[in-house]
Design a protein around this nucleic acid. Structure first.
Lengths: 296, 296
DNA sequence: TTAGTAAAATAATATGATATTATGAAACTG
DNA sequence: CAGTTTCATAATATCATATTATTTTACTAA
């Protein structure tokens, strides 16, 4: 019993005529006859009583008619749902990101995206290595990470140039000057993320490259907590611009230049090289670039 | 998209491998590959991500998998239900009968039949012409009637020989004698069914054939009511043995012979000549004959 | 790194189910 | 009773769906 068989049978049921069904299905009448009698042979039940030249459904015929309609409806529903997916009227996108992007950028990006497409977006925050692994086993479709990616099977494309800002409280003595020499930082209490975080890695690497010594006095694993501590003038910190732009504009934190030292890093978009790029996927990448051009 | 496509796709989903699916379905691996890529072409969506040499379902793939399983389950359910019908584990039989048979015989017959098969039996009571029409337009599968059938397309097979008994109350003066001469009936008050009823037809025809005159004093359309009236000695009546055997055995009514006049008729089983005789249908006819041999 | 193996894709071909046309039988219509 | 309609049957054609053979790619183990 094929779907075609069912379609033919249901049409015959509804028109109570094989010839009419053949006409409606744009096929010859014997093809319909053959299909029906073949079904009767396979199922070993009589589907129609041929009384006179009228067809009337037998009891098993009625049963099959009712199932047949349900089956065809399900098939049509499946096809139209897939069509919706294809046309991005529905869909699913699984995105992963490292901490800074995940907390300070992606929620807004996804919010905007969902205003345009009513799709489900799943969203994971992990460190770069974790996101990389999720990409490798296809647990997420796309990631935005800060660190270097090692797997040769992952495509990495540059996304946003990020910069870490040295920030202090508006009550700090640097708040007025807005610029210091690298030497001035040496005796300052620095509040910093834990070892292994992307932010700390960039900070330490840049300081080392510029031969500046420093003293980390407080370690906090949460950027928001660091910002509060800096605001309270417990120390100064180096934080991604994405995390502190609002506070700087609001005057609660002050950005301070350290000679011409800049803490720079790049965010990258990553995905698996063999990943099929659905319409929704491509649309999301376009959306990411549109969004980034607003914040640069 | 055919059922075969869906079956192959679902198998691949479950085994996460085309080769394994091919093996399970006893077919070659390229056939599976081809089916999947053809489905992807038709539906215009990617169903699997081929990452490395592992397959993982895309979002539309997951949607189709869930629909696919439902569709296959429904098809299997339909097939197994039809199989139940074929093996008479379920079914439907629509029976019609004229009044006497319908009221005094069929309920018990159907009751016995349903003890053997758990099938639905629909049951219509009408006069012979009505039952004949229901057979003609296939509204019922089988009928049991008393009168002659006219349509050439209806098969009539003899069923039971019925006899009408002249009965009186146990308090009637005939109750002792149990036999009268035809002449004695002429001045007796007779209670009888209405004109057009099979019982009355047989009664009048038999009386006329034997040149016996009679006087119908009361007309009741309900045989039960007639029996009560006879019991109350309001008059005597002529009633099918099927309707009065219990009362005669119980002594509440007395059967009286009228010389050697007998009121005889035949019940017939009728069905449409083009009717497909399902197992259940044949079984019911056998059941009818088994049953009748118990009451003869 | 390199054989060896395994999985999926591709190409060419074979098979068989599912159509078609042609025709016949039965039954309803005027 | 002729004409028409409907379904069934037979012979044939077509096309979808399989198969075998082969290539490509990726994983595994020496």
């Amino acid at each position: 019993m094929t779907l075609r068989d069912i379609e033919i049978f249901v049409t015959v049921c509804e028109l109570k005529s094989m010839s009419a069904a053949a006409k409606k299905l744009y096929m010859s009448q014997p093809a319909v006859s053959q299909t029906i009698s073949q079904m009767e042979g396979e199922l070993q039940v009589r589907l129609f009583d041929r009384i006179g030249r009228k067809l009337s459904l037998t009891y098993p015929g009625e049963i099959l008619y009712s199932y047949g309609r349900r089956i065809l409806n399900l098939v049509r529903e499946a096809e139209s749902t897939l069509d919706d997916v294809r046309n991005m009227r529905m869909g699913r996108l699984r995105v992963g990101a490292s901490t800074t992007v995940g907390i300070y950028l992606l929620p807004e990006i996804i919010g905007e995206f969902r205003k345009r497409f009513s799709v489900d977006v799943y969203f994971t925050i992990d460190n770069t290595a974790g996101i990389e692994k999720l990409i490798s086993d296809n647990s997420i479709d796309l990631g935005i990470v800060e660190g270097p990616v090692h797997s040769r099977e992952i495509v990495v494309i540059p996304y946003i140039d990020d910069e870490l800002y040295l920030v202090c409280s508006k009550n700090h003595r640097w708040a007025e000057k807005k610029s210091i020499s690298p030497a001035e930082i040496e005796n300052e209490d620095i509040i910093m993320r834990e070892k292994g975080s992307g932010t700390r890695e960039v900070f330490e690497e840049t300081m080392a490259r510029n031969n500046v010594s420093y003293r980390i006095k407080y370690v906090l694993t949460n950027t928001e907590a660091i910002k509060k501590a800096v605001e309270a003038n417990i120390g100064v910190s180096v934080i991604s611009r994405l995390a502190v732009e609002k506070e700087i504009r609001g005057g609660r934190l002050v950005k301070v230049d350290i000679g011409n030292i800049r803490f720079e890093r790049k965010f990258s978009i990553i995905y698996h090289k063999d990943k099929f790029k659905s319409n929704l996927f491509e649309e999301f990448i376009r959306h990411l670039y549109n969004f980034s051009s607003n914040i640069k």
